[in-house]
Design a binder for these strands. Structure first.
Lengths: 160, 160
DNA sequence: GAAAATCCCATGATATCCCATGAAATCCCG
DNA sequence: CGGGATTTCATGGGATATCATGGGATTTTC
């Protein structure tokens, strides 16, 4: 297990804690980062989460700008300043901060969406809408690429 | 913990003391600098703060100018001459000098913004305005780097 | 000797730790 | 192959530690 795969939805308890899906915890353990690195996505009501691999990806996007340059300051303010490092308790749970919950519109449950080297946190119903939107868009793209054909070998799963 | 991450806002007490966020103190402890190195930000009403890594970064940005050149003199006057080293008390608090408070327009509370190897001090409401600007700038940069790569969803992040 | 800075301790809110529980998935042995 | 035994996992709750903040007391500074 070295990639975040699949989607899970868990509930927050009275103290605001959520269990990170067990398979995601296994990936984090391999990644070797103590805690959960969380960064709000810029144009989605979601939060990117992960460990070292996510963090270094973000850091590296900063290295192309010299320190003290305007762009470097702007980027680090948004990417690092808005990020949070959540502690993972002994049972594999985290407490989401108010900023994270506000940004993603999260109430009493969270959907964890695996995306390889990172995963995203969503408010469940918002994620369902987003996924539908993404599928429709994918269909459009395929239609344009393969006019008059059905995509061979590229499945999108059962249509609902 | 080796980077300043996330944003915190704390209040000054009657004696002018503010707690440095605990996670930032942990980073400073690793960095091994006794005190808090503070340097007014050149073009912003903010103050850069940190430990050894900030200090060496400032020194290195000076080496790109020949010693005794006008630019070197000017920059070192500003960057080093205007810097201050604040004492950190046993409870992890500092007392901001009048210069710092004046430069950043700080009243009765301070926002600490993590930026990796350093963090910034802001007057809270001023920071909110700046953050909005920073996000817009990040959008521009993303657009230039990833042309035609739009998010599939129709939602955009919540505006505050 | 007075004002300011520093040290030390108090306190309430919040976060963290540790153990319990029940349901579901997995295993195991016939 | 099957069904009971065991483990895993998400969730819950009480006890404990951490942290920001406040204030008195002592030391420093000029």
């Amino acid at each position: 297990m070295d990639e975040f795969v699949s989607t899970f939805t868990n509930r927050l308890d009275a103290k605001g804690r959520v269990s990170i899906p067990a398979s995601f915890r296994a990936v984090l353990a391999v990644d070797g980062f103590d805690g959960l690195y969380c960064c709000p996505t810029l144009d989605l009501q979601a939060v990117d989460a992960g460990g070292n691999r996510l963090r270094t990806t973000i850091s590296q996007s900063l290295t192309s700008f010299p320190p003290f340059s305007e762009d470097h300051e702007f980027l680090s303010t948004t990417l690092i300043g808005e990020s949070e490092i959540l502690k993972i308790d002994g049972d594999g749970r985290v407490v989401l901060t108010d900023q994270i919950k506000a940004h993603a519109g999260i109430g009493d449950s969270v959907t964890f969406v695996g995306q390889g080297y990172k995963f995203q946190l969503w408010e469940p119903s918002r994620f369902i809408a987003y996924r539908k939107e993404a599928k429709d868009r994918l269909r459009d793209i395929r239609k344009r690429l393969l006019p008059g054909h059905r995509a061979a070998g590229v499945t999108s799963g059962p249509e609902e």
